[in-house]
């Protein structure tokens, strides 16, 4: 099973990288871009297991290491079609 963890800055936390990306896109002529946020995706290959248990374990990984919850929030997606 594959777990995808999306980690990004919490709303309200200034994202200088996102802001730079947005202004660079504006400079390239993409005036419709109003804001950008940058985060990361961490893909975990996991042993198959019961969905709720797997999700609880991945949540624990996020809290302990993958995200710094002082500044970041995270979202977990499980994909059982992939081995």
């Amino acid at each position: 099973m594959i777990a995808r963890v999306y980690v990004g800055l919490k709303p309200g936390v200034l994202d200088p990288q996102g802001r730079t990306i947005a202004s660079s896109l504006n400079d390239l002529g993409f005036e419709e871009v109003q804001d950008a946020t940058q985060g990361k995706v961490i893909e975990l290959k996991l042993a198959n297991g019961e969905r709720d248990l797997v999700k609880a374990r991945v949540k624990e990984m996020c809290e302990k290491l993958l995200a710094n919850t002082v500044i970041e929030s995270y979202r977990i997606e499980l994909d059982e079609t992939e081995e």
Partner: peptide, 17 residues
């Protein structure tokens, strides 16, 4: 020390990049 929870807060990318 902040990542270990021994001090409050976090250190982010410099605002000027």
């Amino acid at each position: 020390l902040t990542e270990a929870g021994m001090l409050p807060g976090a250190l982010m990318r410099n605002a000027g990049q």
